[in-house]
Nucleic acid binder design. Sequence first.
DNA 1: AACGCTAATGCGAACCAGTCGCAACAGTCA
DNA 2: TGACTGTTGCGACTGGTTCGCATTAGCGTT
Lengths: 144, 144
Amino acid sequence: MAYANKLKDDLDDALREAGLRVTRQRAAIVKVLTEAEDHPDAHEVHRRASEIDNTVSLATVYRTLAVLSDKGIVHRHAFEGAPARFETADAPHHDHIIDVDTGAVVEFASAEIERLQREIARQHGFEVVSHRLELYCRRRKDKR
Amino acid sequence: MAYANKLKDDLDDALREAGLRVTRQRAAIVKVLTEAEDHPDAHEVHRRASEIDNTVSLATVYRTLAVLSDKGIVHRHAFEGAPARFETADAPHHDHIIDVDTGAVVEFASAEIERLQREIARQHGFEVVSHRLELYCRRRKDKR
DNA sequence: AACGCTAATGCGAACCAGTCGCAACAGTCA
DNA sequence: TGACTGTTGCGACTGGTTCGCATTAGCGTT
């Protein structure tokens, strides 16, 4: 997923466009994120980025994830009882199903639920700024 | 909310029924929770419980909240970027609207959203174990 | 190609919510 | 009242994440 089709030059541009310096470390981190098929946490990003550039420190991973998150380039998800996990923000909006047994994450989207959320907020005199919808699930035994 | 109508004796029973000893500290903590109209975090529960019994330590608050949570007597909610907040579990199931400006929490329920969640999970081969739905909102200016 | 401004980095210390080990303590039931 | 054992307070500790600071290094300029 996520910027996976973009080339490295484009990624650098994405950073620059956000008014950020393109450092070796950031390039490595962004590369890791764009190539990730899963939702890695900070330590995992650090581990993977270290393979590309072993000067990347964990602190920089956190700082970079924070800045990318601010810029809306990546999304941070703090699922129940686990360190935050990250994904690039290029995919259309979606929420998550978390497999409670494996920790695997599946994405889904429901325009209908989104609509109901806005409606409920409105009924209470609010407007939705953001939301969090996570389904903690287990694979169905009876597949039928 | 929450057990607010029960008397202290009933609360003690609730603890005993769960196979737990009724200690002064637990009684104080449970009292705080049953009388809370809001969703206090552990430190706030500790502060309030200390007024009833100043021997209550923060560790015991955490331990008691954990055990009550295990027993399903209270619910723990870890909202975005804030320490976990607690509420008694006597009210019917509901999700939360969090006012991003004030931190205030409003409860709501939507059978329709619940239904859609189960449907989505099923479509992906899962069944919902639990879910988290939080609407981070702002009061509407244009009350129109 | 070296220059300079200042953002970004690595390191380790600090932070914070929450947990744990342990000896002292106190419910509960006989 | 006694004894068994669950609970407690304390302070140490953890794990994820952030911060302070001196050093390094982008990148627009000369």
